[in-house]
Simulated assay, not measured.
Amino acid sequence: MTTFDNPATVPAPPAGRYSHVARIELGGTTMLVLSGQVAIDAEGRLVGANDMRAQADYVLDTIEKILAAHGATLGDVVNIRTFLTDLDRIGEYAQARLPRFTGTPPTSTTVEVSRLFVPGALLEVEVTAIV
Rank of each mutant, 00 (worst) to 15 (best):
S19W: 12
T62D: 02
L34R: 00
G36T: 02
V38Y: 02
Q55L: 07
Y18V: 04
D76R: 02
Y93R: 09
Y18T: 07
R115K: 13
D57W: 06
L26W: 07
V127H: 02
V47C: 04
V77C: 05
H70V: 03
T128M: 14
K65L: 15
A94G: 06
A68C: 05
A68V: 07
A42Y: 04
H70L: 01
G103H: 11
V77M: 07
E112S: 14
L98F: 09
A39D: 00
A129N: 01
L74K: 07
V113W: 11
N50I: 01
G36M: 06
L34P: 00
Q37R: 12
A69V: 04
V77W: 02
R17T: 11
P106F: 08
N50T: 11
I24W: 05
T110G: 07
S19Q: 14
T30Y: 01
Y18S: 12
V127Q: 03
R53A: 14
G103E: 10
A22P: 00
A68N: 07
V38L: 13
T82P: 04
L26M: 14
L87I: 11
H20E: 10
A49R: 13
A12K: 11
R89S: 13
D86R: 12
E43T: 11
A39L: 03
P13Y: 09
H70R: 03
R89T: 15
V38H: 05
A54Y: 02
E112D: 07
G91M: 08
A121F: 03
G91V: 09
V21H: 04
T62C: 11
T110I: 15
G91T: 08
L123Y: 00
D86I: 05
T82E: 07
P11V: 06
A49M: 10
D51N: 14
A96N: 05
V59T: 03
V59Q: 03
V125D: 05
P105H: 12
G16S: 08
D76Q: 13
A15Q: 10
D61L: 02
L123D: 00
H20N: 09
F101Y: 13
T30L: 08
G71A: 05
A69R: 00
T110N: 10
L74P: 01
R23G: 00
L34Q: 02
A56L: 05
I130R: 03
A49W: 09
G103Y: 06
L87P: 06
R100Q: 04
A15I: 03
T109P: 01
N79T: 11
Y93N: 01
E126Y: 03
L26D: 15
F83K: 13
T104C: 03
P99Q: 04
P99G: 08
Q37I: 13
V111P: 04
A56Y: 00
G28K: 10
A39E: 02
D57K: 05
V118I: 14
L122Y: 01
T82M: 12
S35P: 05
L60A: 02
N79K: 08
F117N: 15
R45D: 13
P13G: 05
R17K: 13
S114T: 15
A12C: 08
F101K: 03
V113Q: 11
E126A: 15
D51K: 01
F101I: 12
Y18F: 15
L87E: 12
G16P: 09
P119Q: 09
M52C: 06
